[in-house]
Computed example of a mutant assay.
Amino acid sequence: MASSGMKKEIGTDHDALRFGINAGVKSDLLPVHPLQSTLQSETKFWTDKKKFGTEAIYGSAINIRKDFDTQILSRFQRPPGALPSSMLGYEALTGSLDDFGFEDYLNMPQDSDNFRQPDMHHGMEVRLGLSKGPICPSFN
């Protein structure tokens, strides 16, 4: 991926040191690693299999209800302020509460020395389009 300051031009020689080995239109469309595509296809397969099973047992209404709940809960966010959005309902619905990755405990902004408490009023103005800038300028 190119950084925000550098632009790729069509028809020029590829600079592997600046843009990476597989930079180009093809690499933007393909997954980063072959294992990633395998994981995505496996996840999609088991999700479809579970949907088929629940439809066979309970009918198609349960899958439609789950899809609506997923759409609603994936958009829910807490207003900017002291507490970040946890998306607990969405995680409970999708079953990802049990997944615990390194991003859950490493590099948390609250543990930083230069963390500033977010301004709720400015954050809502940015979200509504009344003002510009980051919602929470916590780092200098």
Score class of each variant (00 low, 15 high):
residue 80 P to E: 00
residue 64 I to Y: 06
residue 128 L to N: 07
residue 85 S to F: 00
residue 47 T to L: 12
residue 4 S to C: 09
residue 37 S to N: 03
residue 113 D to S: 14
residue 14 H to R: 12
residue 112 S to M: 07
residue 66 K to P: 00
residue 12 T to E: 15
residue 4 S to I: 11
residue 130 L to D: 03
residue 67 D to G: 02
residue 93 L to V: 01
residue 24 G to E: 11
residue 96 S to T: 13
residue 83 L to F: 08
residue 116 R to L: 08
residue 95 G to Y: 02
residue 124 M to H: 03
residue 109 P to T: 01
residue 68 F to M: 12
residue 5 G to Y: 04
residue 135 I to Y: 00
residue 5 G to C: 03
residue 108 M to N: 13
residue 116 R to Y: 04
residue 94 T to N: 06
residue 74 S to L: 03
residue 72 I to F: 14
residue 124 M to T: 02
residue 55 E to I: 01
residue 10 I to Y: 08
residue 140 N to R: 13
residue 11 G to E: 05
residue 91 E to K: 14
residue 61 A to I: 02
residue 101 G to S: 10
residue 29 L to Q: 11
residue 26 K to Q: 10
residue 123 G to S: 05
residue 34 P to W: 02
residue 22 N to K: 15
residue 73 L to E: 06
residue 88 L to P: 06
residue 34 P to K: 03
residue 64 I to T: 14
residue 62 I to M: 08
residue 5 G to F: 05
residue 34 P to A: 05
residue 54 T to R: 15
residue 117 Q to T: 03
residue 120 M to R: 15
residue 23 A to T: 09
residue 135 I to P: 00
residue 130 L to E: 05
residue 106 L to N: 13
residue 16 A to V: 15
residue 55 E to R: 02
residue 124 M to P: 00
residue 74 S to A: 14
residue 127 R to K: 10
residue 62 I to E: 01
residue 29 L to T: 04
residue 16 A to N: 12
residue 19 F to R: 11
residue 132 K to V: 13
residue 125 E to V: 00
residue 136 C to P: 07
residue 4 S to G: 10
residue 18 R to H: 13
residue 69 D to W: 11
residue 25 V to L: 15
residue 94 T to G: 02
residue 133 G to W: 06
residue 10 I to P: 01
residue 66 K to Y: 08
residue 48 D to I: 04
residue 27 S to T: 11
residue 37 S to T: 07
residue 9 E to Y: 13
residue 72 I to P: 00
residue 45 F to H: 10
residue 87 M to N: 07
residue 27 S to I: 08
residue 100 F to P: 01
residue 112 S to V: 09
residue 82 A to R: 13
residue 67 D to I: 02
residue 61 A to C: 04
residue 127 R to A: 12
residue 11 G to R: 09
residue 114 N to G: 10
residue 138 S to T: 04
residue 128 L to Y: 05
residue 60 S to T: 08
residue 70 T to A: 10
residue 92 A to G: 02
residue 33 H to Y: 09
residue 128 L to H: 03
residue 129 G to N: 04
residue 113 D to H: 05
residue 28 D to L: 14
residue 59 G to M: 07
residue 119 D to Q: 05
residue 132 K to S: 12
residue 81 G to D: 01
residue 2 A to D: 04
residue 102 F to H: 07
residue 126 V to E: 00
residue 63 N to L: 02
residue 132 K to Y: 09
residue 123 G to C: 02
residue 101 G to L: 11
residue 70 T to R: 11
residue 28 D to F: 15
residue 14 H to W: 14
residue 91 E to A: 08
residue 116 R to I: 03
residue 19 F to L: 09
residue 42 E to A: 12
residue 139 F to D: 04
residue 78 R to E: 12
residue 52 F to C: 08
